[in-house]
Amino acid sequence: MDFNNILTDFKDGITTIIINRPKKLNALNQETINELHQAFKDADLDEYTKVIIITGSGEKAFVAGADISEFADYSMEEGEYLAANGQKVLFDFVENLSTPVIAAVNGFALGGGLELAMACHFRVASDNARMGLPEVSLGVIPGYGGTQRLTQLVGKGRAMEMIMTAGMIDANKALSNGLVNHVTSQDELLSLCEKIAGKISQNSSVAIGAAIKAVNANFQECVNGFEVEIKEFGKSFGTEDFAEGTSAFLEKRKADFPGR
């Protein structure tokens, strides 16, 4: 499928999605959000894709925020729909994919950009990355899950400070706060993500999808994460991947998971 605002590439079991609006610092407009939804959906349904990497084009920005020109004149009702639809179409959708998603954060990840990175399963940042939620400086709050996911990742106090000050933190601060898993040079960012993705790809994609579901259950209201874990653990025993993994272990060989 041809896209206007993103590029996709597949190699060695990894689908890389690149947000490609460099003149807008890769800001998210509605067309880009819808294209990202389709690209993530296609990759998740592709049996050959074991890991998805999302990044921004150029050296300045992962995503510098939402395209404010699209919603500056919205009413309260339109604003509420904007947030609800965006969360459903992209941010919650990415978080709940069964295929692991790594955010390769290059440069600015602000507002909706940081919210997109936080919706991914984990994040790797280049040493020039700058992250923040500046929404209150515009008279609004984060609307794509930022108030919730930032708090989950860095704790209530740090999240409150970042949101209230509308300030940015650098990559090393993000690392120490638990917002990103690794920091590397911009030149090595994608190669490090691909190295990690390669390690993930060696394991059972079925088990990884079940683990994502169980981990996410911990953050859902009225859901007992322990019960979800027990159920997903039990279901694993009925998969071909479990049969292959245990056989390979007992036979002292490398597993060749069928992904079923």
Rank of each mutant, 00 (worst) to 15 (best):
G132R: 01
A129D: 01
S204E: 10
I212L: 10
L153W: 02
V183Y: 03
Q152F: 00
K213T: 15
F91E: 02
G132V: 03
Q186A: 10
V136I: 15
E161M: 13
L190H: 08
F91Q: 01
L138H: 14
P134Q: 02
N128Y: 06
A129M: 03
F93C: 02
E161V: 09
P134N: 04
N216S: 12
G157F: 06
F93T: 02
G113R: 05
E135M: 08
Q152Y: 02
S201L: 11
A174F: 00
C120S: 15
S98Q: 12
A174N: 02
S191I: 13
G209M: 07
V94Y: 02
V140F: 13
S98F: 02
I141Y: 13
G145K: 04
M168A: 09
L116E: 03
E161R: 11
G107L: 05
L190N: 04
G111H: 10
E115L: 07
A109I: 05
N218E: 14
F122H: 07
A104R: 03
I141E: 13
L97M: 12
G145Y: 04
P142E: 12
L114E: 03
I208F: 09
V223Q: 12
N177Q: 14
S137Y: 08
F91K: 01
L133Q: 00
V140W: 06
A117P: 08
L190M: 15
C222Q: 15
V140M: 14
A103G: 04
T165P: 01
M162K: 07
L192Q: 08
